[in-house]
């Protein structure tokens, strides 16, 4: 029998491929590098957010603050670039430090005060959104020449696709996350924590350090998503990206990660993002459907994937090997 988390990943990948083929059979022009390039560009900030969310959910937590952090980041950058002569790269570093520290602070509260992540990050969500309002209530345009330079970094693929830098950043983030989760001790500790915090402690996992690092990564990646979003929109607006945390959670779950933690792959999240982007693209191509159909389909998919996980979990324990079969005669 196949290991259930991997099976969930394959099912997500198959779903994406099937959905893409079905869309392409209706609208053959969807089979173009242009569509693929736009899929990556349009979902870059959501994709980055979802990477951080995967870490958090794998560890058995949740982070509701990320949407607000993205909005805050946009306003923060826009205001700094408007009011000071700071170079955007310096502002980027400053912002990443702020959001990472913010994530680490939430992680510390969750660990040391033994508070549920849901409440702590909910508070973080209000806090960050409020801070964004304090900085500016209007949409602040970003006109720095450096932004034009970044936006001009384009790789033109044959077929008219324009692969932009921000899509590349997202893909890079997924590759790094995969290495961290599967090839480092910290990564394995994330899974251990999600399996059972009590057991992980008994097995010597440094719970405090791991928890804080996980939420710091979530905050840092949300900050990076904020930078990408500001490049994508050339503005900072405190009302932007409301509810993005829920989209990110949806992508993680559709990607096959167990919402209770301990099981899943960041690669699955990538396909979760692509599936969600694909639905939107399909609706654009169709032209007659209301964009709310995106939400309905995502809702249906989420439900289907939750049922699937239940079934897979049940199948793994049912298929338990008895001791006598695997024991060698000694």
């Amino acid at each position: 029998m196949m290991r259930s988390p991997r099976l969930a990943l394959y099912i997500t990948m198959t779903t994406f491929v099937l959905a893409f083929l079905i869309s392409a059979s209706q609208y053959p022009s969807m089979l173009s590098t242009r569509v693929v390039a736009n899929l990556l560009t349009d979902n870059a900030f959501l994709g980055l957010t979802a990477v951080g969310m995967t870490f958090v959910i794998l560890s058995g937590g949740i982070d509701l603050s990320v949407g607000s952090v993205i909005a805050f980041s946009g306003v923060f950058l826009a205001v700094i670039l408007r009011d000071t002569s700071m170079h955007p790269l310096v502002a980027f570093v400053l912002l990443l430090m702020v959001t990472t520290a913010f994530g680490a602070a939430m992680g510390s509260i969750i660990h040391y005060l033994e508070m549920p992540p849901f409440i702590v990050t909910l508070a973080g969500m209000f806090l960050m959104r409020g801070l964004a309002y304090v900085l500016s209530t209007d949409s602040v345009p970003i006109t720095h020449p450096f932004y034009d330079t970044i936006q001009d970094v384009v790789w033109k693929a044959p077929g008219g696709g324009r692969f932009r830098l921000i899509g590349g950043i997202m893909i890079l983030a997924y590759i790094v996350a995969m290495i961290v989760l599967h090839k480092t001790r910290f990564g394995r500790n994330v899974y251990a924590l999600g399996g059972s915090a009590g057991t992980a402690r008994l097995m010597g996992v440094p719970i405090a350090r791991t928890t804080i690092t996980i939420y710091a990564i979530g905050g840092g990646l949300a900050g990076l998503a904020g930078i990408v979003y500001s490049i994508y929109t050339s503005a900072g607006y405190s009302l932007a990206t409301v509810g993005v945390e829920l989209d990110a959670i949806a992508a993680v779950v559709i990607g096959g990660t167990l919402l209770s933690g301990g099981s899943g792959y960041v690669a699955g999240t990538f396909f979760g993002i692509l599936i969600m982007g694909l639905i939107q693209t399909y609706i654009v191509f169709d032209g007659t459907l209301s964009s709310w159909w995106t939400k309905i389909v995502i809702g249906g998919l989420l439900f289907a994937f939750i049922m699937l996980q239940k079934a897979l979990g049940w199948a793994t324990t049912k298929g338990r090997r008895p001791a006598s079969e695997s024991a060698t005669q000694s």
Partner: peptide, 24 residues
């Protein structure tokens, strides 16, 4: 007191995994 969500090897070696070029 082991982690059911991880592989047998992961459970045996959690915290003292063999490393090669700083990766597991």
């Amino acid at each position: 007191n082991l982690l059911e969500n991880m592989s047998v090897s992961d459970n045996l070696f959690l915290g003292w995994q063999p490393m090669k070029r700083r990766l597991l």
